[in-house]
Amino acid sequence: MHIPDGYLSPSTCAVLGAVMAPVWYRASYKLKYTLDAARVPLLAMGAVFSFLIMLFNVPIPDGTTAHAVGASLLAIVLGPWAAVIALSVALFIQALVFGDGGILAFGANTFNMAFIAPFAGYYTYALLGKGAKPGAKRQLTAAFAAGYISINIAALAAALEFGCQPLLFTAADGTPLYCPYGFSVTIPAMMLAHLTVAGLVEGFITLIALKCIIHAEIPLGLEKTDKEEIQDV
């Protein structure tokens, strides 16, 4: 899911970075008012938590392993805006320090994994699990669906970003300048892997981790709800 540099044109990266700018602004604005401004350690720990989730090798039945992104889990346990910041910071450090994902492609990677994935996961969970009792089957099913849907929507976004490259950026002699595959290749290639394996891994990890979090009675959400804000005022 981490897009390296070279696959997307600088203009695609710039557009997606520009799309992310208001998202980061909104996330920091939201957190400034719902979270104490000086509470940066909590956000840093959120980023550390996100980094650790991505480090896990999750076993899959054929004997190999896969990685989870943990975007929907983070959105459920920290809140979607805190998840945007935590995932963006984790992706920045991964790109710069560990070479996972490109530096110019940072905007694209954050758009897919730190914006689309946590919001898709959060709203799926909110919609399906609304009013469910903590630990109830419906809540856990909603968590699974959140993980499954979020990673697949993010994969589809990445496939569309890859697929538009040969349509938009080709030399006069027909040489594709960036990713050479069109939509007919990128969409099936990305979606097949995510619909059958990565989505299930993400869904199960979200479900099991949330079940353990509920069992351990760890409070959910870094962000305060509007009701709590009013009470504070």
Partner: peptide, 14 residues
Amino acid sequence: KLSWIGGTIADFLR
């Protein structure tokens, strides 16, 4: 395996 991973994630969140 999965329940250990889930438990560890919950521990790390705490």
